[in-house]
Amino acid sequence: MCSDDKTGDAKPGTAQPTVFIDNDRTRVTEWRFKRKGDNTGWHRHEYDYVVVPLFDGVLEIDLPDGSRTTAQLQNGVPYFREVGVEHDVINGNDFECAFVEVEFLR
């Protein structure tokens, strides 16, 4: 996940990333949100990626146009996004949650 912010002055997120694999082809990161409101911080994805949720629940997504949407996730059910997605991902649950992000670096 690229950590470039949309405004140049965005604050870093509070979610905890743990990188498990980082080589010339793939980066695999677990993002852990300890409490409701924890977030990744604004970023733009520089690579195609897949997310695998490790929980059943919702994430709130802040978008560049100022809107917020929610994503209903199911444990173990992955989704794919293409390069260029820009957002801040926020834990919308009253419990700790996490997902694994797999970035395709080439």
Rank of each mutant, 00 (worst) to 15 (best):
residue 1 M to R: 05
residue 1 M to H: 13
residue 2 C to Y: 13
residue 3 S to G: 12
residue 3 S to H: 12
residue 4 D to F: 07
residue 4 D to S: 03
residue 6 K to M: 12
residue 6 K to D: 01
residue 8 G to Q: 09
residue 8 G to W: 05
residue 8 G to P: 08
residue 10 A to N: 14
residue 12 P to D: 07
residue 12 P to G: 07
residue 12 P to V: 01
residue 12 P to C: 04
residue 13 G to I: 02
residue 13 G to C: 09
residue 16 Q to W: 01
residue 16 Q to V: 15
residue 17 P to Q: 11
residue 17 P to R: 11
residue 17 P to Y: 13
residue 18 T to M: 11
residue 18 T to L: 14
residue 20 F to V: 07
residue 20 F to L: 15
residue 21 I to H: 12
residue 22 D to P: 04
residue 22 D to C: 05
residue 22 D to L: 04
residue 23 N to V: 04
residue 23 N to D: 14
residue 23 N to R: 06
residue 23 N to L: 06
residue 24 D to C: 02
residue 24 D to I: 00
residue 25 R to S: 02
residue 25 R to E: 08
residue 26 T to K: 11
residue 26 T to P: 03
residue 28 V to I: 15
residue 29 T to K: 09
residue 30 E to F: 08
residue 30 E to R: 15
residue 31 W to C: 07
residue 31 W to K: 01
residue 31 W to E: 01
residue 33 F to K: 04
residue 34 K to I: 00
residue 34 K to D: 14
residue 34 K to S: 12
residue 35 R to P: 02
residue 36 K to L: 03
residue 37 G to K: 09
residue 38 D to N: 10
residue 39 N to W: 04
residue 40 T to H: 09
residue 40 T to I: 01
residue 41 G to C: 11
residue 43 H to K: 07
residue 43 H to G: 11
residue 44 R to L: 03
residue 45 H to I: 03
residue 45 H to V: 08
residue 46 E to N: 13
residue 46 E to G: 13
residue 46 E to L: 12
residue 47 Y to F: 15
residue 47 Y to A: 15
residue 48 D to Y: 03
residue 49 Y to D: 08
residue 50 V to L: 14
residue 52 V to S: 04
residue 54 L to S: 08
residue 55 F to H: 03
residue 56 D to P: 09
residue 57 G to H: 10
residue 57 G to D: 11
residue 57 G to I: 10
residue 58 V to T: 14
residue 58 V to P: 05
residue 59 L to Q: 13
residue 60 E to R: 13
residue 61 I to V: 15
residue 62 D to M: 09
residue 62 D to S: 08
residue 63 L to Q: 14
residue 63 L to H: 09
residue 64 P to I: 02
residue 64 P to G: 05
residue 64 P to Q: 08
residue 64 P to R: 01
residue 64 P to E: 01
residue 65 D to N: 15
residue 65 D to P: 06
residue 65 D to H: 09
residue 66 G to S: 04
residue 67 S to V: 07
residue 69 T to V: 11
residue 69 T to W: 00
residue 70 T to Q: 15
residue 71 A to H: 11
residue 71 A to K: 14
residue 71 A to N: 13
residue 72 Q to W: 00
residue 73 L to M: 14
residue 74 Q to Y: 06
residue 76 G to V: 08
residue 76 G to A: 09
residue 77 V to L: 12
residue 78 P to M: 01
residue 80 F to G: 04
residue 81 R to A: 07
residue 83 V to D: 04
residue 83 V to F: 03
residue 83 V to Y: 07
residue 84 G to M: 03
residue 84 G to W: 02
residue 84 G to N: 05
residue 85 V to G: 12
residue 85 V to A: 13
residue 86 E to L: 04
residue 87 H to G: 05
residue 87 H to C: 04
residue 87 H to Y: 00
residue 87 H to N: 07
residue 88 D to G: 02
residue 88 D to I: 08
residue 88 D to L: 00
residue 89 V to A: 11
residue 90 I to M: 02
residue 90 I to F: 06
residue 90 I to R: 10
residue 91 N to L: 02
residue 91 N to E: 08
residue 93 N to P: 02
residue 93 N to I: 01
residue 94 D to Q: 05
residue 94 D to N: 15
residue 94 D to F: 00
residue 97 C to T: 14
residue 98 A to Y: 02
residue 98 A to E: 02
residue 99 F to V: 01
residue 100 V to D: 05
residue 100 V to R: 09
residue 103 E to I: 12
residue 104 F to I: 00
residue 105 L to N: 04
residue 106 R to H: 14
